[in-house]
Design a protein around this nucleic acid. Structure first.
Length: 215
DNA sequence: CGCGTTTGACCCGCGC
DNA sequence: GCGCGGGTCAAACGCG
């Protein structure tokens, strides 16, 4: 009986930890959403001014300003991915299908955990880069910021994987089950589902209430 | 010996 | 112009 209670308590603890992680992610996404929303409103204002005053040059003039241009580029902010890992594991390795070569590491002001800089090593001329840093609130979460696009396809990677597996053919069922067991894949999947839900709700015009009730 | 990682130095943009 | 901080470079080092 006690064993059952202990198991349940352990499971409850796990659920609480996951809940905390999700709440942190939601808070981060919420703040980004707010920034993006206000930025969109700014753009709309600029467009309205440009149309109402019938001065085509007025809107573009605003973007000749250095700061304004910077704000504009934030709309194309690089993709951020969250990956849950072992907090004691200091390796900044994220299994995302590509091969990366580390070229630098820096301790940043706002986060005590060092930020690692990676370049794609699958193609010599590939401009893709990524930054990996532990989450300031939860050391078990890695935040990967992707910068630039790969100028090659994933087949290169698949070839490498096949070479690694000595050309053995993996059954699809086995591959799928291995993917499900992979926490990195689960996180990526959860993110994709969340993104789909968010976009669907946006389309339906439902106002998202991002506030998460306190425990 | 070749390849990847580490780490201090350097560069550059931004804010004051 | 200066200082700060983030990003990159490259020599040294380690590992297979």
């Amino acid at each position: 009986m006690d064993e059952k209670v202990e198991t349940l308590e352990a499971e409850l603890q796990l659920v609480r930890e996951h809940n905390n992680t999700l709440r942190l992610m939601l808070e981060l996404l919420s703040s980004k959403c707010t920034k993006l929303w206000s930025h969109l409103q700014e753009i709309n204002k600029v467009e309205q001014i440009g149309i109402s005053s019938n001065q085509i040059g007025s809107a573009s003039k605003l973007y000749t300003n250095k700061k304004a241009r910077l704000e504009f580029t934030t709309a194309k902010k690089p993709l951020e991915i969250f990956v849950r890992t072992d907090p004691n594991d200091d390796s900044m390795i994220i299994k995302d299908g590509y091969q990366w070569r580390k070229y630098g590491q820096k301790v940043t002001k706002d986060n005590a955990s060092p930020r690692a800089y990676f370049r794609c090593s699958m193609a010599p001329s590939c401009p893709a880069k990524k930054k990996v840093q532990r989450c300031i609130h939860d050391r078990s979460i890695l935040v990967a910021t992707y910068d630039g696009e790969h100028n090659h396809d994933m087949r290169l990677c698949e070839d490498v994987m096949q070479q690694h597996d000595h050309g053995s053919n993996i059954k699809i069922e086995e591959y799928v089950s291995s993917l499900i067991k992979d926490p990195d894949f689960t996180v990526a999947l959860a993110e994709a589902v969340a993104r789909t839900i968010t976009s669907q709700r946006k389309q339906q015009g439902i106002n998202l209430n991002m506030d998460v009730p306190e425990e």
